[in-house]
Design a protein around this nucleic acid. Structure first.
Length: 262
DNA sequence: ATGGTAGCCCTGCTA
């Protein structure tokens, strides 16, 4: 079973490339972030032609997340399943569904904008609430996969130059602690588990100043799996080719294969 | 080269 995740930075702008990529890579399940579409505008028929059902959660301006699956798509939950939790409806940053026996979540964590800002506090709160969502709706002993753009680089090895990021978001102890809280549910960062000491495993490069071509990136997109799944990972890849060529997203997809059949 | 890109349609804001 192949599960992928990709921040596409507008599904409308990226649709041709996404179709081409899905046809080539053929994941059973793919999580998308930053679709920037309203639910009614999502091009479901284009995905149907490729054999995918899609559940989407977006309002059309920013954010927007989706799960595409060709191994079933059941028990869709939009936003947080946290009783009394925050009203996430206006943000559209989380969607959950069961696909081929795996509880899959597509997540787009807030950027945070600047350290200490109200947006930064909201980012920390979002990660805290994601843990509550997991605690409320899942069992760490079951097959759960949380994929998406976390807007946190877990370690210094995950940025091109730690000195460049001093004072910046994505690398602070607070953000890393909040991410660790999510992982503490019982999740494994499957890419880092496969390549514990490999630098430059980046998933995002700023469009500006040729950052992709000069290798100035960060690893902020993650594929997290519960142990029962993580133990069955047979292959994991950041598809840098998808960051090249005409009209790329600023993020590369992550592809994970499991020795696991739906 | 002390700037630069991309996407949205709130042409300023977000990333």
């Amino acid at each position: 079973m192949r599960i992928a995740t990709w921040n596409v930075n507008s599904m409308k702008a990226r649709l041709d490339r996404v179709e081409e990529w899905l046809a080539q890579v053929a994941p059973e399940v793919c999580c998308f972030q930053e679709t920037k579409l309203a639910d009614a505008a999502f091009p479901s028929e284009r995905f149907s032609k490729l054999g995918y059902e899609v559940a989407h959660h977006g309002d059309g301006r920013w954010n927007g997340v989706a799960i595409a699956s060709r191994v079933g798509l059941e028990d869709v939950v939009r936003g947080f399943a946290v009783p009394g939790g925050p009203d996430e409806a206006a943000e559209r940053r989380l969607i959950s569904a069961s696909c081929g026996g795996v509880r899959v979540m597509s997540v787009y964590v807030p950027n945070g904008r600047s350290v200490g800002s109200e947006h930064f506090q909201a980012k920390l709160a979002f990660l805290h609430d994601l843990r509550l969502h997991l605690d409320t709706s899942c069992d760490p002993g079951e097959a759960v996969m949380v994929c998406g753009d976390f807007n946190v680089a877990p370690q210094d090895i995950d940025v091109f130059d730690p000195a460049f990021f001093v004072g910046a978001t994505h690398v602070t102890p607070e953000e890393r602690a909040a991410l660790a809280e999510v992982l503490g549910f019982g999740l494994v960062d499957v890419l880092r588990a496969c390549y514990p000491d490999t630098p430059r495993l980046f998933t995002w490069w700023d469009y500006r100043a040729g950052d992709f071509h000069s290798g100035r990136g960060m690893r902020i997109d993650l594929a997290l799996a519960t142990r029962v799944l993580a133990d069955k990972v047979s292959f994991v890849l950041i598809d840098r080719n998808a960051r090249k060529g005409k009209l790329p997203s600023d993020h590369a997809p992550i592809v994970v294969d499991f020795a696991y059949s739906p």
